[in-house]
């Protein structure tokens, strides 16, 4: 799979085909009757499933816009009461906790993305362009790294952070997530497909590798940088297990850890609970609406799974 992302994005960048409309090129295909019926049938079945899939989110949104008093009674009253109120949202946004969570999530995600993208692309550049002793070894170590499940390392990582006195700091969330090995492969595959003419010309002019990486390779790699940044961002933003155990200071909690405490602390304020879930999800929904193509392509191309 890792090999396909580079090829695919390369093909796309060359042809200028938008990935957002993947099937557009097969648009005018069928004219025969049975194919048409089949297509309409497919559409109906898919619509039913899509509607089914939307129910939980819509239910949470509806509850969050209903008063706590109504939602405490049960599903029927929530469904029937259409006096919509933003009471839960204003209570949460005035309460303050959510702002701490947003800050923690935003800071840890942005810094992790910056470090991961910079370091992974640098390593990938060396693997793609430079011939050196030990290159194969590094390559195989990276392959090995892909197979390590970071979640399972939570106990030793916790002990390590305790040892260097980083528990209860944002760095405890950031540093362990920087070595995302898959990012190295995605960058390497992309670099492998870039034309080398400019770089060779620059070498002859006497440019060093760092200059070439910074001024030639990286500017050509904007699509893969965007895709990798967003996929990493989503992964770090959503990580529960690491911040859950390395942060105990409520002021430092990220969104997932904060949301994990909500059920206990809000008790019967069901509308508030659903509103906090919506507020926790909102930044990612907005991100999706803006970067739909990069997210879908990044996920499909890297096979990165939580």
């Amino acid at each position: 799979m890792t090999s396909t992302i580079a090829q695919r994005s390369r093909r796309r960048t060359r042809n200028g085909v938008s990935a957002a409309a993947p099937v557009a090129r097969v648009a005018t295909r069928r004219s025969d009757g049975s194919g048409r019926t089949f297509t309409i049938g497919s559409g109906v079945v898919l619509m039913v499933f899509a509607a089914l899939w939307l129910i939980p989110s819509l239910w949470a949104i509806k509850t969050s816009l209903t008063s706590n008093a109504t939602s405490a009674i049960g599903a029927g009253p929530i469904l029937r009461d259409w006096r919509l109120t933003f009471g839960s949202y204003s209570a949460l946004l005035r309460g303050g906790d959510i702002w701490d969570w947003y800050l923690a999530s935003a800071f840890t995600s942005v810094v992790t993305v910056a470090l991961t993208v910079l370091f992974a692309s640098m390593a990938a550049y060396a693997l793609s362009r430079l011939r050196f002793r030990g290159r194969r070894l590094v390559f195989w170590l990276m392959i090995g790294g892909i197979m390590i499940p970071p979640q399972v390392l939570i106990v030793p990582v916790f002990q390590e952070l305790e040892l260097v006195k980083l528990l209860n700091t944002y760095w405890a969330v950031i540093l362990p997530q920087v070595p995302a090995v898959i990012a190295v492969f995605v960058f390497k595959q992309f670099f492998d497909g870039l034309p080398r003419d400019f770089e060779e010309a620059a070498r002859i002019e006497g440019a060093d590798f760092w200059t070439i990486y910074r001024l030639i390779v990286m500017p050509l790699s904007k699509p893969v940088i965007a895709a990798m940044s967003i996929v990493t961002f989503v992964g770090v933003w959503n990580n529960l297990i690491l911040p859950l155990f390395v942060l105990s200071n409520p002021k430092l909690m990220t969104i997932p850890v904060g949301l994990a405490t909500v059920q206990g602390s809000y008790g019967q304020r069901l509308s508030d609970i659903q509103a906090s879930s919506i507020l926790g999800a909102l930044p990612l929904v907005i991100l999706f609406l803006i970067f739909q193509r990069q997210i879908v392509e990044g996920v499909a191309g890297t096979g990165v799974k939580g």
Binding site: L46, L54, P56, W59, L240, L259, Q274, L284, F288
Partner: peptide, 24 residues
């Protein structure tokens, strides 16, 4: 629309999902 319906939940935090479904 299908991507919105099927794919968006995947990029949301597990904690938000758990709150929604525990409530259901």
């Amino acid at each position: 629309f299908f991507r919105l319906a099927f794919f968006v939940p995947f990029i949301l935090p597990s904690a938000a999902i758990a709150l929604i479904w525990s409530f259901i």
